[in-house]
């Protein structure tokens, strides 16, 4: 299996860990620069016998195992993939311009297909929302973690009018179309970061500009 670099917490001594560039140098480059993932992934293999490994993400929040089955593929927000089994194929895909700018999931998202399981991590709890065919669901931007490839989403204003969207504090949201599933995180890392930022002192400043 492969896991995000630095994700391991504990393991059995029989398991081996190796740093690997998943998908070759350029694949790793693309993934880390564009997809916001770590450049190296650790490959945990059971060469000498069975064992178990504990993994944890750096953010405080849920992890969720998703099974790749039935030919379904999934998109995962960059930086939210914690681990994947060996047979999962991972690629980086670009989103549409509006989605890339405003969805909070970034311009490049990870595309997972193949067979096996993968694990997503998020900030806060992860909720799985099934969207039946022909129905729609609206998720505030910054809360989308993963979605199945059969769904698609568009950026819409959260309220009925621009004024109500802005004043309600929601602004833009992602409207998903069924059929499919979407996984959301109950907390918005960026909003949390902004909240923490009020109490943090600024570092760097002018001195770093002159170098």
């Amino acid at each position: 299996m492969r896991a995000e670099a630095g994700a391991m917490v504990a393991k059995s001594p029989k398991l081996h860990i190796r740093g690997k560039m998943w998908g070759g140098f350029f694949g790793a480059m693309k993934r880390s620069v564009l997809g916001g993932e770590t450049f190296f992934f650790q490959e945990i293999s059971a060469e000498d016998g069975n064992g178990d490994v504990l993994l944890a993400p750096s953010l405080i929040g849920d992890v969720k195992v998703i099974s790749l089955a039935d030919g379904q593929d999934y998109y995962v927000q960059s930086g939210c993939l914690l681990a994947a089994l060996d047979h999962v194929e991972m690629g980086t895909k670009a989103q549409k311009l509006t989605a890339g700018l405003f969805s909070g999931a970034g311009f490049f998202v990870l595309h997972l297909k193949g067979s096996g399981h993968f694990v997503i991590s998020a900030f806060g709890a992860i909720m799985e929302i099934p969207i039946p065919a022909g129905q729609e669901y609206i998720v505030d931007n910054g809360h989308v973690v993963a979605w199945s490839g059969d769904t698609e989403y568009h950026m819409v204003k959260a309220g009925k009018t621009w004024w109500s969207s802005m004043t309600s504090g929601e602004g833009l949201a992602c409207k998903f179309q069924g059929p499919g599933k979407v996984w959301i995180q109950t907390r918005n890392p960026r909003a949390f970061g902004a909240w923490v930022g009020q109490f943090a002192t600024r570092r760097g400043g002018l001195a770093s500009l002159i170098g």
Binding site: Q72, P130, P132, A133, D150, P179
Partner: peptide
């Protein structure tokens, strides 16, 4: 993939 109206995972 076959989706029915329930919103369950497809078959």
């Amino acid at each position: 993939r076959f989706y029915d109206s329930s919103g369950n995972a497809p078959d």
